[in-house]
Design a binder for these strands. Structure first.
Lengths: 132, 132
DNA sequence: CTTGACTCTGTACTATGGTACGGAGTGTAC
DNA sequence: GTACACTCCGTACCATAGTACAGAGTCAAG
């Protein structure tokens, strides 16, 4: 019994859209499986693991391009490079957090300025944004 | 003496690109200034303030659509709504920070797993991503 | 065979915030 | 007038990660 998955079955097991599978294939993240001319794609059941790998890596902030790199390293057992990539992403995430914290503080200051300003005064948020 | 700025001068004073000014105009963030048919745009000097308002609001995480709303509120002195918008953005920024912190922790765990694993073992990052 | 769910294909679209472009025209200084 | 920097205009493009679509074809169950 030659067992394969249709694209819809793969998408369902991987918790993604059919269109997403097609997209990943176009992007080279998934290989074109066996497919009769004009017929349905026949995905190996192991392909589910690969889709899940992609989604897990995405959840960690990796772009699809980066994930393609990770998938290549998986095949080559390139552990040092993988660690390098993860460390770099960690740094970027930390930097983004720092940016957002700065943003948060500025916003909190603005909201607070509104809360303490008297009813007849001009809007502190607008004034600060309009300042020169 | 009727003083105006050309688009290049406005862009320079606002620290943006000429194309960006045109884009903001297309988006309705800036009004079409007086302009002879087929001639150069004549921007009032005060337009610099408006461009700076936009960039400051962007720095706080507001989208251009949201900024258009803020600009409208500036004209109407809508202080309560402005505070509402800022408070909502603050909340979104806080949520995004929380997401990133989760991401950071997971990445740090992965990098650490690499650091403590023995040289001959399989790559912990790949294993975790490939896990089922 | 019929039916209905699923699939294919390649192009276009979404959202965001820009950025580029080419040929023609404008405006200013010399 | 000449030269050169700047501007116009409308369309297309960039990056990311999908998502949509229409008409035709496939596949499996009844």
């Amino acid at each position: 019994m030659n067992e394969y998955l249709t694209i819809g079955a793969l998408a369902k097991k991987g918790s993604v859209n059919v269109e997403t599978i097609r997209y990943y294939q176009r992007r080279g993240l998934l290989q074109l499986p066996f497919k009769p001319q004009g017929g349905f794609r026949h995905y190996a059941p192991e392909t589910v693991k690969r889709v899940r790998f992609i989604k897990r890596a995405q959840a960690l902030g990796f772009t699809l391009e980066e994930i393609a790199g990770l998938l290549a390293l998986e095949e080559k057992k390139g552990c040092l490079q993988t660690r390098e990539i993860a460390a770099r992403k960690l740094k970027l995430v930390e930097e983004r957090i720092a940016d957002l914290v700065t943003m948060k503080k500025a916003l909190a200051r603005l909201v607070h300025a509104c809360d303490v300003s008297s009813a007849g005064a001009s809007c502190p948020i607008i004034c600060l944004l309009a300042d020169d």
